[in-house]
Design a protein around this nucleic acid. Structure first.
Length: 1128
RNA sequence: UGUGAUAUAGCUUAACGGUGAAAGCAUUUGCCUUAUACGCAAAUAGAUGAAGGUUCAAGUCCUUCUAUCACAACCA
C-alpha cells in the first residue's frame, strides 16, 4: 500500500454523489464534444432529433423517449461512429398561440385590433422559449446527450426560408393546389381546427340534440306510387335547408311502408331500410298483416302500418324529390339537385338507412354529392362569391328569411341571449305542421367541441391549400417497405395502412404565429407566384417598388448571398411582415399573399433540410447524403401520423427518398395501474422528483429493462427502487469488495503482468467465458435496436453470475494468504468483468458506468463514453464450461434445498451427496466442478450412483421434435407407448441402444438418442429433482462433523465480534476462553483452523475468573462458551 | 366506427409450433455465512382472457368474441 495510488472506496451506492461528480466531469472536460470530434467524420451515424415544443413542461414519458434515443447514439459512438445530434425546438402552432391568448387575456378577434399582429407574434416568440431552461435542465439531468448549444429553431428566418424552398419545390411539381373542403370549424374561435385539436381530451362530449326524421316527397316516377316519402334522419336539423341529396346504400334492401303521419294523421307511403323498420315504428305504431287492415282515424290509440314492396338501394338511385325547405336554390346546377344518390358509407345501424345529404356541412356528403354531380347549397353573397347558408359566425344568411341572423346552435349566443326555441326546434315544428316530419325526438350522442371555447364545432366549407399527397401515395408505400420499423407491425400496419389511404394534406391554418404560405396571388386568382427564397422575395419586392405597389423594399438591408446571422436578422418572414408585401404580377397586377399559414407539422417534417438551411448552405449534407437520410430516429407511437408521416411525405415528394432507415416508435408511459397519465387524474409523474429520489440511471434502466420500448410501460416507482437495489446496489457492492481487497494487496489499475486466461482457475475461465458471450450478445441486441434484451442480459450477468456466484465462491481467494498467482488471477478477472460491464451498460446507465469505469481505471481523465466497445475473444468462450457450471449451480441449489428441508444449517458440514450418473460424460463434467459444489454446500464428497438398477428410478420422454417429423400421425401412439415404459424397458433401451415399440400394425425401432432419460428418485433417500438431475443428501452427522460444525460456528461468532468491535480485517488477535467439555474438545481438534480463520496468534484456555471484563458468552449448538478477544 | 397493438402466477415480464410453462417482485419461512439485512437461501403459487379451428403436436398459427390501450375519425 503505502504511497501507491489506491482505488476509491465508498460506503454505499449514492446516486446524488456520483451523478453530480460525473455531470461536472462531462462539462469540465467536454466529454460530449469529444465523443463526437474524436470520431471519424467519414463514419457517420445520422440521427434526427424530433423537436419537442418548449411550450409545456417535460413529463416522465419524455425521459423514456430521450433515453431510447440516447442509448443508440451512445452505442454507435462506442462502436466508433461519429454521431452528431442537433437539438431542435418546435416553436409554432396553435397550442402556443392559445397559451399566449390566455396569458394576455385576449381572443382571436382581438388580434389586429387590441393588439397588433407584430406584438402578438413577439409575445409568441417569447412564450415559446418559456420552458427552455426546464427542458435544458431535464436533458442534462437524465444524461441525454444532444447539442443544446446549436439547436434548430423553427421560427428562425433560415429555417423558414428552407421550408419555403421545399414548398416551392412541391409547387413546381404541381403538387400544391387550392381547394374548397369541409373542415371542423369553431365559429367562436374563428378558425378551422386541425384533427389533432379535435382529439384533445374532453372535446367529444355527450349532448342532447333535437333530431328529426324528415319526409322527403318523391316526385312522380316509374317505381314508387304517388304520395311516397323518403325518410331521412338528422341530428342537425339546421342543415336541412342545405339538403341537396339523399344517399342510399346500393346493396341495402329498402321497403315501402303504408301508414299514417302521427302529427298530421294523413295517410303516407314511406321508404326506409328494411332492417330499420322495427326501430322506427315504435310506440303508437302497430304492424298489420294485410293492407286492408290499415284503418285509422285521428284519436285512435294505435297507428297501423303495413310493410309492402321491397327495393334495393340501387333501384332508388336517380329518383327526384321535392326540396324539403325551399328557401333558396344552389347558385349553379340546381337542376341536378334533390336526387337519390348512392354512397358506400350508409349503414343500417341507426336512422333510416337513407342519409340526409348537405354537401356544405359534411365531408362524406360533399364527396358523394360531387361524385354524383349534385351541387352543394351555395348562394352568391353581396360580392358575388359563393357561400353556404350559414356565415362564419355560425348565423343563418338573409336567404333564410324568418330564420335569418339566428345562430344555428343556441350555444353560440352570449349568456342569456339565446332564444327559447333553437333553430333546430323551429325547423322541427315547421316540418311537423307541413307533414314533412315523421318523428321528432331528443337524442343523446357524442359530438366534438372546440377545446378552447367549449362550444360545439361546425363542419364548414373553407378554402385551403393542399398538397396532392394522393398522387405520390404508391411511392410512399414503396419507400416505406425499405424502412426498418421497430416494432414491425407499426410500419406495415398502422403506418402502412395510413399511407395507402392517405388523403391530400391540408396545409392551411388561419392563424398568426407560423410560417406563412409563400404564395402571392392577383385578386382574380389568375396569376400567382410562389416564393422559394429570401433572394426571390427581395427581387420581387424590387419589381413591386418599381411598379409603384410599395414605397420601399422591406428587404432592402438583406444582402443576397450573405449567410451571416446578422444578415438574416435584418428582416422577418412572419405574417405581420410578409402580409405588408404587395408584389407585381407579370401582367402588372398587384398580388397579395394568401393569408393562411402552413400546418406546423410541415415545419417539423422539414427539419432534415431546414436544420442545415438547405439548400442555401450545407448543400452537400443532403445532396451528398452526409446527414440524410437518418440512420435512426425514435419518437412516441403517437407521432406515426405526425412527425413520422411528415418526414416521410416530404422526403418522398421532394427527394424521392426515405427520411430514416431505422425507427423506433415507442409506447406510452402509463401509471402503475395502466391508466393514461393526465393532469386531470393527477396521476402524472414529475420526472425531476423521480430522478432526485432514485437517480437517472436507475430510472433509465428500469424503463428500458421492464418493457420493450414499443410496449406501453406501466410506470411504477417500486420498479425503479428494485432496479436500484438489485442491479446498481449489487454492482456497487461488487466494486467495493474489489476495491477493499485490491487496496490491501496493492493491486494496480493497469497490471504489469497479465495472467493468461487458460492459466487461471476454472471459475475464472467460466466467468470470462460468460463475459465474452455477453459482449457478443449485447452487441447484437443493440445493433438490432433491442435495448430491453441488452439490459436484461447485462443485469443477469452482473447480479446472478458475477456477484452471486463468482464473487461469492471466490471470496476467500481475495483475502486469504499472500499475493499469489491465484489471487492475482482473481483480481484480474473481476477487474476485467467490471470494466467491460461498465462499457456495455454505459448507453443505458451513462452516469454510474462512467463512475465505475473511471474508478477502476484509477484515472479521472478517462471516460467510458470515449472507450471502444470491447471485442469478443472467441477463444475464451467455452460452452462446455458454461454448461457444467450451470449444472453445479443447479446441484448446489438442490442440496441447499435439502438442507433446508432437514433444517441443517450450511455451516454444519455433511458427509456426502449421492448423484445418479446416466452417462459417463456427465460424471466427467461434474467431476470438474465438484470442488465448487462441495465448498458451496459444505459437504465432504460426492458419491456417483452408476449401476443404478433398483436404486435410481428413471423416467423417459420421447424426443418429439425428431420423432414427430419422422412419424407424423403415429407420434401419438409412440408417445403413449413410451410413457408406459417401466424401469425394465428403460434399462433395456439403455443397454441395447434401441428397443422395438409396437405401433398398432407396425413396429418401430426406437433409438436411445431419440429419447430423453432422466433420474427421478433414489430409493430410500430424500431427494431433490430438477431438470432431470436428482440428488440425495446424507444427513447423518457424526461426532467429527459435529466438531467441525462447532468450530465453524465459533469462527463465525468471533468474526462477527471482530466486525462489531471495528477491528481492521488485517488485525491479529489473542483469544482467551472457558467452555464446556464438548466445546473444549472441538477447539482442541480445530485450534489451527480457528486460529487461521480469525487471525488469532494464540488461543488459550483460562479459568472463568481470569477472563477480561469485556468477555462475552456464546451459545454454540446448545453448548456454552465464554471468551474474550483482544488485539495482539 | 375503422386501423393497429396487448391479454401468461397477486404484480412486472420470459418461453425457435415439440408436449412436464420460466424468472424477478410480493407473500411465508429460515439465515446478521469477515461485500452487501437496501443482503442471502428456501417454500408457496398459474389448465397462458373466452370459444372454435389448423396440426401427430398450439401460450405460440388461423377465425370469432370479450376486455384494455393507442391512433384515425362528420353514425347522418
Amino acid at each position: 500500500m503505502g504511497d501507491q495510488k489506491s482505488f476509491r472506496e465508498f460506503k454505499q451506492y449514492d446516486h446524488t454523489f456520483f451523478e453530480k461528480e460525473i455531470l461536472a466531469f462531462w462539462e469540465e472536460k467536454n466529454i460530449f464534444q469529444k465523443s463526437i470530434t474524436e470520431k471519424d467524420p467519414n463514419k457517420p451515424f445520422v440521427f434526427f432529433e424530433g423537436p419537442p415544443s418548449a411550450n409545456g413542461m417535460p413529463g416522465i414519458h419524455h425521459v423514456m423517449g430521450r433515453t431510447i434515443k440516447d442509448i443508440f447514439c451512445r452505442y454507435k459512438t462506442l462502436k466508433g461512429y461519429q454521431v452528431k445530434r442537433k437539438a431542435g425546438w418546435d416553436t409554432h402552432g396553435l397550442p402556443i398561440e392559445l397559451n399566449v391568448e390566455k396569458e394576455l387575456g385576449i381572443t382571436k378577434e382581438d388580434i389586429g385590433k387590441k393588439i397588433s399582429v407584430e406584438d402578438y407574434n413577439a409575445a409568441c416568440r417569447k412564450a415559446v422559449m418559456k420552458y427552455t431552461d426546464v427542458w435544458n435542465d431535464i436533458t442534462k439531468r437524465i444524461g441525454y446527450w444532444v447539442d443544446m448549444d446549436h439547436p434548430y429553431i423553427t421560427y428562425e428566418n433560415k429555417y423558414m426560408e428552407s421550408v419555403w424552398w421545399l414548398l416551392k419545390n412541391l409547387y413546381h411539381q404541381k403538387l400544391l393546389y387550392k381547394g374548397y373542403t369541409i373542415q371542423p370549424y369553431s365559429p367562436k374561435a374563428g378558425t378551422g381546427l386541425s384533427s389533432h385539436e379535435l382529439n384533445q381530451p374532453g372535446t367529444y362530449q355527450d349532448v342532447k340534440d333535437t333530431t328529426v326524421v324528415a319526409q322527403f316527397l318523391a316526385k312522380p316516377n316509374d317505381i314508387l306510387p304517388d304520395n311516397t316519402y323518403f325518410l331521412a334522419w338528422t341530428t342537425t336539423p339546421w342543415t336541412l335547408p342545405s339538403n341537396t341529396a339523399l344517399t342510399v346504400g346500393p346493396k341495402i334492401p329498402y321497403v315501402l311502408v303504408k301508414t299514417y303521419n302521427q302529427y298530421t294523421h294523413l295517410p303516407v307511403n314511406l321508404i326506409l331500410a328494411k332492417p330499420l323498420v322495427a326501430k322506427q315504428f315504435t310506440g303508437k305504431y302497430e304492424a298489420v298483416e294485410k293492407e286492408e287492415e290499415l284503418q285509422y282515424s285521428e284519436g285512435d290509440k294505435k297507428i297501423p302500418y303495413w310493410v309492402g314492396q321491397e327495393f334495393l338501394g340501387q333501384d332508388l338511385v336517380g329518383i327526384s324529390y321535392e326540396q324539403l325547405l325551399p328557401y333558396t336554390l344552389p347558385y349553379e346546377n340546381s337542376d341536378q339537385a334533390f336526387r337519390v344518390i348512392p354512397g358506400d358509407f350508409v349503414t343500417t345501424e341507426d336512422g333510416t338507412g337513407i342519409v340526409h345529404t348537405a354537401p356544405t356541412f359534411g365531408a362524406d356528403d360533399a364527396k358523394v354529392a360531387k361524385d354524383a354531380g349534385v351541387p352543394p347549397m351555395l348562394v352568391l353573397d353581396e360580392n358575388g362569391h359563393p357561400v353556404p347558408l350559414v356565415d362564419l359566425q355560425g348565423r343563418f344568411r338573409p336567404e333564410m328569411k324568418e330564420l335569418a341572423g339566428k345562430y344555428v346552435k343556441n350555444e353560440y349566443y352570449a349568456d342569456g341571449d339565446a332564444p327559447e326555441r333553437s333553430v333546430d326546434v323551429e325547423i322541427a315544428i315547421q316540418l311537423k305542421e307541413d307533414n314533412k316530419a315523421f318523428k321528432v325526438e331528443k337524442y343523446e350522442h357524442n359530438y366534438p367541441h372546440c377545446w378552447r371555447t367549449d362550444k360545439p364545432i361546425l363542419y364548414y366549407p373553407l378554402d385551403s391549400w393542399f398538397i396532392k399527397v394522393t398522387e405520390r401515395k404508391e411511392r410512399m408505400v414503396e419507400l416505406n417497405n425499405t424502412i426498418n420499423w421497430k416494432p414491425k407491425a407499426t410500419g406495415t400496419g398502422r403506418f402502412g395502412n395510413w399511407l395507402s389511404n392517405a388523403n391530400d394534406w391540408n396545409l392551411s391554418r388561419s392563424r398568426y404565429w407560423g410560417i406563412p404560405i409563400p404564395i402571392w396571388r392577383t385578386e382574380d386568382g389568375k396569376e400567382e407566384l410562389c416564393i422559394g427564397s429570401v433572394e426571390e422575395l427581395k427581387n420581387a419586392c424590387d419589381a413591386a417598388v418599381a411598379a409603384g405597389f410599395m414605397k420601399q423594399n422591406p428587404l432592402a438591408d438583406f444582402v443576397i448571398g450573405d449567410m451571416s446571422e446578422a444578415n438574416y436578422q435584418s428582416f422577418d418572414l412572419h405574417k405581420n411582415y410578409v402580409d405588408e408585401i404587395v408584389l407585381v404580377s407579370p401582367n402588372g397586377q398587384p398580388m397579395k399573399r394568401e393569408s393562411d399559414l402552413i400546418d406546423v407539422w410541415f415545419d417539423s417534417g422539414s427539419m432534415p433540410y431546414a436544420q442545415w438551411h438547405y439548400p442555401f448552405e450545407n448543400k452537400d449534407k443532403i445532396d451528398g447524403h452526409q446527414d440524410f437520410p437518418a440512420d435512426f430516429i425514435a419518437e412516441g407511437v403517437d407521432q406515426t401520423r405526425g412527425w413520422f408521416y411528415t418526414l416521410h411525405a416530404i422526403a418522398t415528394m421532394c427527394f424521392d427518398s426515405i427520411a430514416y432507415k431505422n425507427i423506433i416508435s415507442n409506447g406510452l408511459v402509463l401509471d402503475k395501474n395502466g391508466n393514461k397519465m393526465s393532469k386531470r387524474l393527477g396521476n402524472g409523474v414529475d420526472p425531476f422528483e423521480t430522478i432526485d429520489q432514485y437517480g437517472s440511471d436507475a430510472t433509465r434502466w428500469y424503463m428500458i429493462s421492464n418493457a420493450q420500448p414499443w410496449d406501453n410501460l406501466k410506470f411504477d416507482v417500486e420498479g425503479i427502487e428494485e432496479t436500484r437495489r438489485k442491479l446498481f446496489g449489487t454492482l456497487a457492492n461488487t466494486y467495493s469488495f474489489f476495491a477493499l481487497y485490491a487496496n490491501i494487496d496493492g493491486v494496480a489499475a493497469q497490471p504489469s503482468e497479465r495472467i493468461p486466461v487458460n492459466e487461471r482457475p476454472e471459475i475464472d475461465q467460466w466467468v470470462i467465458s460468460l463475459l465474452n458471450t455477453l459482449v457478443k450478445e449485447v452487441d447484437e441486441y443493440y445493433a438490432d435496436y433491442e435495448p430491453t434484451k441488452a439490459a436484461r442480459a447485462i443485469q443477469d450477468f452482473i447480479s446472478d453470475n458475477l456477484s452471486n456466484w463468482y464473487v461469492r465462491l471466490c471470496r476467500r481467494r481475495f483475502w486469504k494468504g499472500d499475493y499469489s498467482k491465484d489471487k492475482l488471477a482473481a483480481y484480474q478477472t473481476l477487474q476485467e468483468c467490471l470494466e467491460k460491464a461498465a462499457i456495455l451498460m454505459s448507453p443505458i446507465a451513462p452516469f454510474y458506468s462512467d463512475f465505475l469505469y473511471r474508478n477502476l481505471k484509477m484515472d479521472m481523465e478517462q471516460s467510458v463514453h470515449l472507450a471502444d466497445y470491447p471485442s469478443v475473444d472467441h477463444s475464451v468462450i467455452d460452452k462446455d464450461l458454461e454448461y457444467r457450471m450451470d449444472k453445479a449451480q443447479k446441484i448446489s441449489s438442490m442440496v441447499l434445498s435439502l438442507r433446508k428441508r432437514e433444517s441443517i444449517k450450511v455451516r454444519q458440514p455433511l458427509q456426502k451427496i449421492l448423484l445418479p450418473i446416466l452417462d459417463d460424460q456427465f460424471e466427467e463434467q461434474i467431476e470438474q466442478v465438484k470442488s465448487l459444489i462441495l465448498a458451496e454446500v459444505n459437504v465432504k464428497e460426492i458419491e456417483y450412483l452408476k449401476d443404478t438398477s433398483g436404486i435410481v428410478k428413471k423416467s423417459i420422454k420421447p424426443d418429439f421434435k425428431v420423432l414427430g417429423k419422422k412419424l407424423g400421425p403415429k407420434m401419438k401412439d409412440l408417445a403413449k407407448a413410451v410413457n408406459g415404459f417401466g424401469q425394465k424397458e428403460i434399462e433395456t433401451l439403455e443397454q441395447k441402444g434401441s428397443i422395438v415399440v409396437s405401433l398398432g400394425d407396425e413396429n418401430y425401432e426406437l433409438q436411445l438418442e431419440e429419447t430423453e432419460i432422466r433420474s427421478e428418485d433414489i430409493e430410500g433417500w430424500m431427494v431433490a429433482s430438477q431438470d432431470g438431475i436428482t440428488v440425495a443428501l446424507d444427513v447423518n452427522i457424526t461426532d467429527d462433523l459435529q466438531f467441525e460444525g462447532n468450530a465453524r460456528e465459533i469462527v463465525n461468532r468471533i468474526q462477527k465480534e471482530r466486525k462489531d468491535r471495528g477491528f481492521e480485517v488485517t488485525d491479529r488477535i489473542v483469544i482467551n476462553f472457558e467452555a464446556t467439555d464438548l466445546i473444549n474438545a472441538t477447539i482442541h481438534s480445530y485450534k489451527d483452523y480457528i486460529a487461521t480463520e480469525v487471525l488469532a496468534n494464540k488461543i488459550n484456555v483460562v479459568p472463568s475468573h481470569d477472563l477480561n471484563g469485556d468477555a462475552f458468552e456464546l451459545e454454540i449448538n446448545d453448548d456454552k462458551i465464554k471468551l474474550s478477544i483482544q488485539k495482539a
